[in-house]
Nucleic acid binder design. Structure first.
Lengths: 231, 231
DNA sequence: GAGTGGTCTAGACCACGGT
DNA sequence: CCGTGGTCTAGACCACTCC
């Protein structure tokens, strides 16, 4: 109703009306033109408010059909995945890095399958350990597609982690991240200084550059590590 | 350059120039006015493109200072957290639910502290088991603040899970989600039918309604469960 | 076919915050 | 102070998709 309704206020108003069951789940909202009239503002302002609410998972919008309240709102959680060096240094600790192993091999079958590369294509395989104040913090196992990133073959990963190197050198267009919990393998347990079978948080990250597989990384964190929404 | 540059094309163009090191990390982009001139479009169009790239973590924008390329782009991962019933039914399986325990107690110290409620305030404490085709799928432990949600005291959680009930009945304004890996406690292990100490994926979810604590839930999933970006 | 959202424009005023 | 992004407007055309 305020003469100077901004898109933020419109978002709030819409959420209030949904909460008060004026627009219950599944029901249609008025059209943008009508809402602009109701709120005394331009249609573009309403459009931005509704577009953002749709993006946030509250509304469902379709041309011609209109805007409706989602039956159950999509519940999204956004995580910022920090560069491990920055995460450790931001906490006031000292970052350390060790390259554990490096070899060039034909892609194992599971990797070729999971990643969409020809079976037997050469990949660079690295295992690394990241330290926080000298204590094991994260174990990283990484596979780099040498067809897509040939320069990785001659890069020196003894001083700089593959993550940092890739961030600087290799662009990508698509990412897939997944989280899970696994029992520490013998090797991971040894590197993390935990008992074999201990519960460790696992992050897997795959990237592509315009359809070409770039890299796949699996990371295991020391016990107690959590990933939390927000910054 | 095309006469009809849309904001999508501008985003692409900007990303290409960043990739080609025309605008290297840390450098400033031209102002919106100049870019609008370059791309032959209105400033609003440039604004939307840059605003979205900032939202995605590629750019850093400040009034007066201008727009610069982030030194290292923020790496964000967005997860859609499904309602467990819908997740199971979407996979073609049968959903089952069991209420394991229910009691009303004064909030334990850790809960009061972690959640910002007065020590000793009454909370409803529930333990539930969610089943997929009769097999344990998820164990849920839930605490509901009865000061904020008094109606929960008389709700019947034997037929409907607290999650579904809360989604229908209680609005919230703020959420915090965190993921981790923990060793299954004796009780969780028994409910999930795994050995004690097995690695299980844990999701913790807290919600507030305008500063008032609503509910805290901890959920443990059967082995092998993963949370993946995208829908 | 027609109604809805999706987008673009040209212009304007404002708020923040670096210099 | 004053340049930059943040937002709003009034109008327009377009694209999708439901009927």
């Amino acid at each position: 109703m305020p003469a100077h309704a901004g898109y933020q206020q419109i978002k709030t108003q819409v959420l209030m009306r949904i909460r008060d069951d004026i627009w219950p789940p599944g029901s249609f909202l008025p059209t943008e033109v009508d809402l602009a009239d109701m709120f005394g503002c331009a249609r573009a302002t309403v459009n931005r408010a509704l577009r953002e609410l749709a993006e946030e998972g509250v509304l469902d919008r379709r041309r011609k059909a209109g805007t409706r309240v989602r039956l159950s709102p999509l519940r999204k959680a956004e995580f910022v995945i920090p560069l491990i060096r920055e995460e450790i240094e931001a906490s006031g600790s000292t970052y350390g890095y060790v390259l554990v192993s490096r070899d060039v091999t034909p892609a194992p079958g599971w990797l070729a399958a999971a990643f969409g590369i020809p079976l037997g294509a050469e990949v660079l395989h690295l295992r690394c350990l990241h330290l926080c104040d000298e204590d094991p913090f994260q174990v990283e196992e990484r596979w780099i597609n040498l067809d897509t990133v040939p320069s990785a073959r001659s890069a020196d990963f003894r001083a700089m982690g593959p993550n940092e190197w890739l961030v600087r050198e290799v662009p990508f267009t698509d990412v897939e991240v997944s989280f899970g919990a696994v029992a520490a393998s013998e090797e991971v347990a040894a590197l993390l200084a935990v008992t074999k079978g201990a519960a460790v948080f696992e992050v897997e990250r795959k990237t592509w550059l315009e359809g070409q597989a770039v890299t796949l990384a699996r990371m295991w964190f020391r016990p107690g590590y959590r990933m939390t929404t927000g910054q």
